[in-house]
Simulated scan of single mutants.
Amino acid sequence: MSRLSTLYRMRGLTLIELMIAMLIGTILILGIVQVFASSRAAYQLSEGLARVQENGRFAMDYLQRDIRMAGHFGCVNDQAMMRQNPPALSTTFAAGAHPALNFGVSIQGYEAAGTGPGSNDVSLSATDAADFAPALPAEFSAQMADAVAGSDVIVLRYLAPEGVPVTSTTGTSAAPVFHFDSSRWSVLQSGVANPGVFGVGDCMGAAVFQAQATGAAAGTVTLGAPPNNTVALSKVFTPGQAVLYRAENAIYYVATNATGGRSLYRLRFLFAPNAANPVVDKEELVEGVESMQLLFGQDRELNANNPPTGYIDRQYTAAVIETNSPTAIENAWRRVGAVQVGLVMASPDRAAADQASAANKLNALGVTFAAPADRRFRSVYQSTIALRNRLYGN
C-alpha cells in the first residue's frame, strides 16, 4: 500500500465540514428544546388547571355541606322555631357566654374591609392584618391572627346530622340524665373524641346545653351544672320521641398556610364535659383558596313580629345586614335563607399563565381582584346555597 493512499484514509474533517455539522446539531438541539419547553408549558397549564378545579370542588363541597346544615335543630326547622311563643329553641347559655355557644344565631358573616360588591383591584397578596365589619369577637380574632385581608368569614352553628334516640330520662327536670343505646356513642362523637355540647330535640322544640358528664359505656349524657350552663333547661323531652345530637360550631375563613400560600381553614371551639374553656380545633382544609366572598340572601319580610314569606329576593354583605338592622341583629340573621359564595382559586405552582394584565381581572360576586404576576393559574368558582333548615315552610 502506498504512502499516499494511507494519508488519504487518515484525512479528517475540514473546518467547514465541522462548522456545518455543528450548525445542523445546534438547530436540532434548539428544536428539541423548543418542543420540550412547549410540552412543559402545556403540562404546567394542564396541571395548574386540574389542581385549581380539584381544589375548587373540594372547597365548595366543604362549604356547601356545612352551610346547608345551618339551623338544623332536629325535626323542627329554624324558621318554625322563630314563630313559636315561647321560642321552640332554647339554650342553657347566657348572653355573655363564649360566642361559639350562641346557637340562637345559626349563621353569621363578617365582611372583609374593602370587599363589597363594586370594589376594584383588591389585592391577592396583601400582608396587612385582616379587618372585618362587624368586628370579630375577641375569642374568634385571637385564634385567627393568620386570616388574610380581603376575604370574608362565615360562622355556622347547628346540630350534627345524625343523632341517637333518647331511651329514658332520669334525674331531675332541671338536671336530667339522658339515656341512649351505648353502642351508638360513636354517632354522638362524629369525629370528636370528647364531645361536651349537645342538643336534644323532638318535633315540638329543641334545647342546646353543655354536659356535666358523659358515659360512653353506660350510654348517658348528664346535664347538671357545668361552667357554661347558667340558664335552667326549660323544656321537657319525652323518651321515645326525643333525639340527642352533638352540637357543632364551625368558622370558615382564608389564612396563610405553612408554605406562605393561602388556604381555606375551619376553626372549631370544642367544649369538653364540665369544661369552662374550649379546645381550639383548627385545620387546613384546601390549599389554593386565595379569597372567599360572601353575600347573604334575606327574606322579604324582616319584621320579627311577622312570619317570613319564603321569598329570598335581596343579597347583602354581612356589614349591610347588621347596619340595616342595628337593633335586631339576631332577627336579621335568622331571616337569612341563602348564601352566595365566591372563591378565588390559584394553582399551587407556576402554570405558565400570566394573569396580571388588565384584561385578566378576576371577579367574584362583584369584587374585582388584581392577580399578582406570579404566573399561577387562577379561576373563580361561585355557588348559591339554600339553607334548607331556614326556608320557611320547608
Rank of each mutant, 00 (worst) to 15 (best):
residue 4 L to C: 06
residue 5 S to M: 13
residue 6 T to N: 13
residue 14 T to I: 12
residue 16 I to V: 15
residue 17 E to Q: 15
residue 19 M to Q: 13
residue 23 L to K: 04
residue 26 T to K: 04
residue 29 I to S: 13
residue 30 L to N: 10
residue 31 G to C: 00
residue 36 F to G: 06
residue 36 F to L: 13
residue 38 S to Y: 10
residue 39 S to F: 09
residue 40 R to A: 11
residue 44 Q to E: 12
residue 45 L to G: 13
residue 51 R to H: 07
residue 51 R to C: 02
residue 53 Q to N: 14
residue 65 R to V: 01
residue 65 R to M: 07
residue 67 I to W: 06
residue 70 A to P: 06
residue 70 A to K: 01
residue 70 A to E: 00
residue 71 G to V: 04
residue 71 G to K: 07
residue 73 F to C: 00
residue 77 N to S: 09
residue 78 D to E: 14
residue 80 A to E: 14
residue 81 M to R: 03
residue 81 M to G: 09
residue 84 Q to A: 15
residue 85 N to V: 13
residue 87 P to I: 01
residue 91 T to R: 04
residue 104 G to E: 10
residue 112 A to Y: 04
residue 116 G to M: 10
residue 117 P to S: 09
residue 119 S to N: 11
residue 122 V to D: 06
residue 122 V to E: 07
residue 124 L to K: 01
residue 126 A to C: 09
residue 132 F to Q: 05
residue 133 A to E: 10
residue 133 A to F: 08
residue 140 F to N: 04
residue 143 Q to L: 05
residue 146 D to T: 09
residue 147 A to L: 03
residue 151 S to M: 08
residue 155 V to L: 09
residue 156 L to H: 01
residue 166 V to T: 05
residue 171 G to F: 02
residue 173 S to F: 13
residue 179 H to Q: 14
residue 181 D to C: 06
residue 181 D to T: 13
residue 185 W to N: 14
residue 186 S to V: 12
residue 190 S to T: 06
residue 191 G to P: 05
residue 192 V to H: 07
residue 199 G to I: 01
residue 200 V to H: 07
residue 202 D to G: 03
residue 204 M to P: 00
residue 210 Q to H: 09
residue 210 Q to C: 05
residue 212 Q to V: 06
residue 213 A to D: 13
residue 214 T to D: 09
residue 216 A to S: 15
residue 218 A to Q: 14
residue 222 T to M: 11
residue 230 T to H: 07
residue 243 V to P: 01
residue 248 E to F: 05
residue 250 A to S: 14
residue 253 Y to Q: 04
residue 258 A to W: 10
residue 262 R to Y: 10
residue 263 S to P: 03
residue 263 S to W: 05
residue 264 L to E: 08
residue 265 Y to F: 15
residue 267 L to N: 06
residue 268 R to A: 11
residue 278 P to Y: 07
residue 279 V to L: 11
residue 284 E to H: 07
residue 292 M to Q: 00
residue 296 F to I: 02
residue 308 P to Y: 08
residue 320 V to K: 14
residue 321 I to A: 00
residue 322 E to I: 07
residue 323 T to A: 15
residue 323 T to N: 12
residue 329 I to W: 03
residue 331 N to R: 10
residue 334 R to F: 00
residue 334 R to N: 10
residue 340 Q to R: 15
residue 344 V to A: 03
residue 347 S to D: 04
residue 348 P to K: 03
residue 357 S to I: 08
residue 360 N to Q: 15
residue 360 N to F: 14
residue 365 L to T: 02
residue 368 T to P: 02
residue 368 T to G: 04
residue 369 F to A: 03
residue 373 A to E: 10
residue 379 S to F: 08
residue 379 S to K: 09
residue 380 V to C: 09
residue 381 Y to F: 15
residue 387 L to S: 01
residue 393 G to K: 05
residue 394 N to D: 13
